[in-house]
Amino acid sequence: MVELTIPDEVAVEGVETGRPVLEVDNISLSFGGTTAISDVSFDVRAGELFAIIGPNGAGKTSIFNSISGVYIPQQGSITFAGEDVLGRRPESIARLGVARMFQNIELFDNLTVLDNIMLGRHNHLHYSLLSAFLFAGKAKRAEVANRRIAEEIIDFLDIAAHRSFPVGMLPYGIKKRVELGRALAMQPSLLLLDEPVAGMNVEETEDMARFILDIRSELGISMILVEHDMGLVMDLADRVLVLDFGHRIALGTPAEVQADPAVIKAYLGEELG
């Protein structure tokens, strides 16, 4: 994955010293009467694996949607790579370097695995409409060069056997990998993973965990992981944010969070209720 390198500043700085790539400040989001996010703040440092946990409906996906511009919080601010991104269109935030896996797979079903991953390269392909019509010169060179990157991602995720099938007909676990591949193809500096192992068996979960660790160690991409699998979160994450009913109830290292009375109460409450 030679060409999949990450901007120097991100790769060089360690987690401890890293300055924040993402700063979320006091955001609040509501839909009519329901409050999805209420006054939540956190930051994600360069190279960090940051986790967000919380019971169903706690607002985790809403936070992802706010970061990627699908929802616009009514209050607060979101700064990514030094730029205020609140209110920007999703495609412009994507261009700044935010990539994403969705909770419910959102692949382009009629496109092949390869084309889905190539779509992740969309903003790295700059040839003109005219050159696309002729498919010569710049367009062809760019396609061939980027195909090589896409093939490397396919090899990395071990999905070469599926590369020319439409993703609609692939099994769930493979679709999840393709979605990860499509996000990686964007060469993001921040990767949002919304329940990447939900519905997976132990083996598939281990594979996915290994991919996440590889991405972190070899590519140095900052990540936010939303996951209900507590074992995975506590194993992988540098820091954990705990949400309940849209509120931030804890933020700290896995050990700190696990010992937090508010967290224990929220999770016990859920189990009892």
Partner: peptide, 23 residues
């Protein structure tokens, strides 16, 4: 089969995801 064709299909299949991918 160019980036334009792929973005057409992406918008057709899932427009929100397409936007989040930078289209």
């Amino acid at each position: 089969r160019s980036r334009f064709g792929r973005s057409f299909a992406a918008v057709r299949d899932r427009d929100v995801a397409a936007e989040v991918m930078g289209v």
